[in-house]
Amino acid sequence: MNGFNADGFNADGFNAARLLEHKAGVAGAAILAVAALVAVVAPLLIPADALDVTRVTDPPWQAPGAGHWLGTDHTGRSIALLMVQGAGTSLFVGLTAAVLAVAIGALVGVVSGHFGGLLAGALLRVTDFFLVLPALVLAIALSTVLPRGLSTIVLAIGLTSWPSTARVVRAQTLTIEARPFVERARALGGGHGHVIARHVMPSVVPLVLVNATLAVASAIVAESTLAFLGLGDPTRISWGALLHQAQLHGAVPQRAWWFLLPPGAAIVVVVLAFTLVGRALEAVVTPKR
């Protein structure tokens, strides 16, 4: 009778109350809520003039002070406003790329775990191929070849970071498929669709959720890296793009630390927050024993 959570989950499924017991996870969620709020609300309040290079009137390379909390960049734009504006892009790319990656990973994992045979063999070889390929190099190659734009970055990150999810989901699918209740479902007349929808998916979904949260963190880092290397969407401001600008226009020789530090810190804090939430979800979803 104690075997009920042998598949790695509580019988009641996801338990939100237990998440609240993880203080670090709650803190992470709070940070994310603030970041999301800023990303959604702030662009509506910022006057277009403030971010237009041709219309700003303030002097460039101004240190943080009363006028500009975080100083100005090489064109005289406020770093604080740029940061707020960039939050949206970073979060959006991180989230959509992670969703794309996890969706591909879950699909490949469930299909290869459930059907087995030649199809699984082929899918696994493809997974292995992407797993051993240095993801960043592949992403750089993809974003160089494809036309510049936000969707290119999402695609480049999403297409390179799904294999680990696929492996985990496949493993979980295999353990579920081996359980007698799946055999019972087959004996009842249930086909592939029934087994996947009623038995495999409910136990894979919590795992996928955890993976997705952790994937967002790495996707944001990947986006920042691509943007820093100058492969981002040139028409949009993101934290990685700010770092790229700072490096390009000589923030280091200017000793303009206020240009480099805020975007870097923002990336670290948001990535940390996603990781904390992901770990807390993981702890809730997997039993301690």
Binding site: G3, G13, R179, P180, F181, P202
Partner: peptide, 13 residues
């Protein structure tokens, strides 16, 4: 079909 171990023959969820 009726299986040997009813605990594992039922989906715990």
């Amino acid at each position: 079909l009726v299986l040997q171990d009813p605990a594992s023959a039922l989906n715990p969820r």
